[in-house]
C-alpha cells in the first residue's frame, strides 16, 4: 500500500510543476508586460518602472523568477489583484465555499438520480423505462448546460415563479457569515425562512451543473449492473432462492459500484469547469464567476492564481479517487 501511495504521489509532483510552469508562463505570454498593464492608462516613468521591476523581481533571470514564484505559491502567496488590491489567496478563500456548496449539491443530485435511473434501467432491460433512461442520459450528455440553465429559468423562475432567478439568498435576509456555506449559515442564524430561501436558490443551479455527471453516472451504472447481473454468482444467488431485492442490493449493486465510483471521481473536474458556466448564468458568487470576470478585467494575477488553485484541487481530487480506488480494489494497487 505504501509503495502504491508513493508511486501515485510521484506522478502528482511533475504534473503540479507542469501546471505551475504553465500559469507562470501565462503572465509572460500575454501581450504587453505586467508593469504596463499595472500602470493602466497613466503609465509609469522610466525610474518608477525600474523601481517596480526590482520590487516585483522582474529584473532577475527568468528561471530565478520561476523559483521565486514557486516558493511564493507553496507558501500560499499568489500575488495581489490589480483591481481590488486584495491578496488572490484570500479572495479565493472567501469565494470558494460558495462553489463547494454548489458543486456538492450538484454532485448529490447527480449521484442520486444517476444511480437510481441506471439501476432501474438495468433491471428493466429492453423495456420502455430502459429506453427512456438511455434517451435522457444521451440527451443530458449532449446538453449545452448554459442553454439548459436558461430553459429552466424560463420555465421555473419566469413562468411558474417557483424559484429565484439568481444569487444565493433573498435580499430581505441578512445572515452573518460563519462558515461561508449559506445552507449552514442560514440554519445558524435566527432569521425565519432564510434557510428555505437559500435552498430554493440552490435548486436550479445544482440541477444544471449536475445534469452531465448524472447522465454519465446513469449510463455507467446501467452497463456495469448489466455486466454484474450476468455473472455466475448472481445465478447462484437466484438458485438459492434469495429475493430479487436482496440480490440486487446486496449482491449486484455492491460489485457494480466499483467502476461507477471511478467515474464519479472523474466528474469532479467536469463539475468545477461546469461551475464556471453555471455561476456566470445564475450570478452565483463563486470562483467560476470570479475567474471569468477577472479575464474580462485583465486582472492577470487573479487569473493566474485562480487557474493554479483550481487545477491543483482537481489534481488532488484525482489523486484521492485513485487512492480510494486502490483501497477498495486490491488489484489496482498491486498492478505494475
Amino acid at each position: 500500500m505504501l509503495q502504491f501511495l508513493l508511486r501515485r504521489l510521484g506522478m502528482v509532483i511533475p504534473t503540479f510543476i507542469g501546471v505551475s510552469l504553465f500559469t507562470f508562463a501565462l503572465i509572460y505570454l500575454i501581450p504587453g508586460d505586467p508593469i504596463t498593464i499595472m500602470g493602466g492608462e497613466r503609465g509609469f516613468g522610466p525610474e518608477q518602472r525600474a523601481e517596480l521591476e526590482a520590487m516585483l523581481g522582474l529584473d532577475k533571470p527568468i528561471w530565478q523568477q520561476y523559483f521565486i514564484y514557486l516558493g511564493n505559491v507553496l507558501q500560499g502567496d499568489l500575488g495581489t489583484s490589480y483591481v481590488t488590491r486584495q491578496p488572490v489567496m484570500s479572495e479565493f478563500m472567501s469565494l470558494f465555499p460558495a462553489t463547494i456548496e454548489l458543486t456538492v449539491c450538484a454532485a448529490i443530485f447527480a449521484v442520486i438520480t444517476g444511480l437510481t435511473l441506471g439501476i432501474l434501467a438495468a433491471i428493466k432491460r429492453g423495456g420502455l423505462l430502459d429506453h427512456t433512461v438511455m434517451t435522457i442520459s444521451l440527451t443530458g450528455y449532449s446538453m449545452p448546460i448554459f442553454w439548459w440553465a436558461l430553459l429552466l429559468i424560463l420555465l421555473f423562475s419566469v413562468n411558474l415563479g417557483w424559484t429565484p432567478v439568481s444569487g444565493r439568498l433573498d435580499v430581505m435576509f441578512w445572515v452573518d457569515e460563519v462558515t461561508g456555506f449559506m445552507l449552514i449559515d442560514t440554519l445558524l442564524s435566527d432569521e425565519d425562512g432564510a434557510f428555505i430561501s437559500a435552498l430554493s436558490h440552490l435548486v436550479l443551479p445544482s440541477i444544471v451543473l449536475g445534469t452531465i455527471p448524472m447522465a454519465v453516472i446513469a449510463r455507467m451504472t446501467r452497463s456495469s449492473m448489466l455486466e454484474v447481473l450476468g455473472e455466475d454468482y448472481i445465478r447462484t444467488a437466484r438458485a438459492k432462492g434469495l429475493s430479487k431485492r436482496r440480490i440486487i442490493v446486496k449482491h449486484a449493486l455492491r460489485n457494480a459500484l466499483i467502476p461507477v465510483i471511478t467515474v464519479m471521481g472523474l466528474q469532479v473536474g467536469l463539475l468545477l469547469s461546469g461551475a464556471i458556466l453555471t455561476e456566470t448564468i445564475f450570478a452565483w458568487p463563486g470562483i467560476g464567476k470570479w475567474l471569468i470576470e477577472s479575464i474580462g478585467r485583465r486582472d492577470y494575477p487573479v487569473v493566474q492564481g485562480g487557474l493554479l488553485l483550481i487545477a491543483t484541487i482537481i489534481i488532488l481530487v484525482n489523486l484521492l479517487v485513485d487512492l480510494m480506488y486502490g483501497v477498495v480494489n486490491p488489484r489496482v494497487r498491486h498492478s505494475k
Binding site: F22, G269, V303, I314
Partner: peptide, 19 residues
Amino acid sequence: ADILLSMPALLLAIAIVAI
C-alpha cells in the same frame, strides 16, 4: 499530454483564451 489532461477541457481553453 498528462499535464494537459489533468485540467478540464473548458478550463484550459479559458486559460489559453485569456492569454
